[in-house]
Nucleic acid binder design. Structure first.
Lengths: 238, 238
DNA sequence: CGCCATTTGTACGTATGTATT
DNA sequence: CAATACATACGTACAAATGGC
């Protein structure tokens, strides 16, 4: 009744245990496939599949021609999974996307006080610089514009002592960036408004105005949420 | 410069496209490995690695001797990745765990108003029943006790129209349940207090007292956070 | 019940491409 | 450039599990 531990699963666990037992850190090298074969008594096929499995989770990282190393333990698997989920839903197309944006807003709003307490003057200047950069790119460089947006929200949460919230927030940003372009009716982002929103966020943060900060965040996400809701119900919007 | 489209990656994308193009849903059958070999012109090894990759993300689900099917798109990869992260950190052992609990609290607190607005009398009764069940299990059935705890928080967010927040919250619960037992100094959970906390949460919800609800949530997570903080700095807390 | 077809799991061998030295 | 080490890819064979006859 104790289930059947398939060999690949066993190898997977063995590799994980190897990392844990030796207290390895991201970037540390792992034994080559051949060595793992000898050590675990399994064929290359099983080793390879196990390594691939762990690579998807970013628990290990394979650099070809180089070797396998302990991974960075990022949230890349979450991004990939959620992105596919967003693309899959047949009619509720924008439901996943909408929920995603809600969670992002939930996180940033919920951390408002701590964000304000943590941001240093240097951080605020950097945020302003990012918004400047955003305006400079403007309409002709959508790629760079989005990059500035991402960097802004990254910088906003980076000083927090809780790294997980920032990573989650960024992961959701990435999912949105991956999924949104594939769907119709969302690509139209109003750059001027976006810039103004970010300015308002920095201004509230600079003044230590927690309430204004939360309002600015809400104002930033409101149009996205409205657009998503409008698209979901055909003919719902204006 | 256009990167090197490794065959496995191509096959992975091809399978994803197959699901998307045919608008398949979780549980729908996929072509067998042999058919995929013929259709994509790749060897079975490549097919298998691609399928394994997608299986980790719960995009596909393989049942041995039966076939391959579209997966449920759960957050299992997130759980596995975060659990390993929690087990890995050498000295900051409890940092990941602490951050995790913070995010859970952040989510439940941030959704407080909407939770209160959504919970029906039947939901509230079910929550009370779960707490009753919790007390019945008591000390002798830690397994069932934990299950009730999980079910409670699941039921709490299940009526929400945003399914993602509930799934995230539950995923974090699962990670905590996986990691905590492996570490020392955390296993001691005070059951009586936990039950009282959950009672307070239901009571506040029943009265529509949003502020009390938030306080109850905070009170529920406070001891866990204190315990984690205490362990992190040796001899820090009492 | 046993038998068989289908499908996935495991193993081994070999050839090729690629990055490092 | 050559040698080395590694990952990538293919092909084949057999084992094990599942479901239907």
């Amino acid at each position: 009744m104790a289930a059947r531990p398939s060999l690949r699963q066993e190898v997977t666990e063995a590799i994980k245990s190897y990392i844990l037992d030796n207290q390895l850190e991201p970037g540390d090298p792992l034994p080559s496939e051949a060595e793992l074969c000898a050590a675990l008594g399994a064929s290359r096929s099983s080793i390879r599949e196990a390594v691939k499995t762990l690579a998807v989770l970013d628990i290990v990282e394979v650099r070809r021609g180089h070797g396998t190393y302990v991974g960075r333990l990022s949230l890349s698997a979450l991004v990939e999974g959620l992105a596919f989920r967003g693309l899959l839903s047949p009619k509720d197309d924008f439901r996943t996307l909408s929920e995603l944006v809600e969670v992002r807003e939930l996180i940033e709003r919920g951390m408002a006080e701590r964000i304000l307490a943590t941001l240093s003057p240097a951080d605020l200047d950097a945020l302003d610089a990012l918004v400047d950069d955003m305006g400079r790119r403007g309409a002709h460089d959508g790629e760079g514009f989005a990059g500035c947006d991402r960097a802004f929200h990254e910088r906003l949460m980076e000083p927090l002592d809780n790294k997980l919230v920032g990573q989650l927030s960024l992961a959701f940003w990435d999912v949105y960036a991956l999924v949104a372009p594939q769907l119709q009716g969302i690509s139209a982002k109003d750059e001027a408004d976006t810039i103004a929103d970010h300015r308002a966020i920095v201004r509230a943060a600079r003044e230590g105005d927690a309430d204004g900060f939360v309002r600015a965040i809400a104002g930033h996400y409101a149009p996205v949420r409205r657009r998503l809701a409008a698209v979901r119900v055909p003919g719902g919007g204006e």
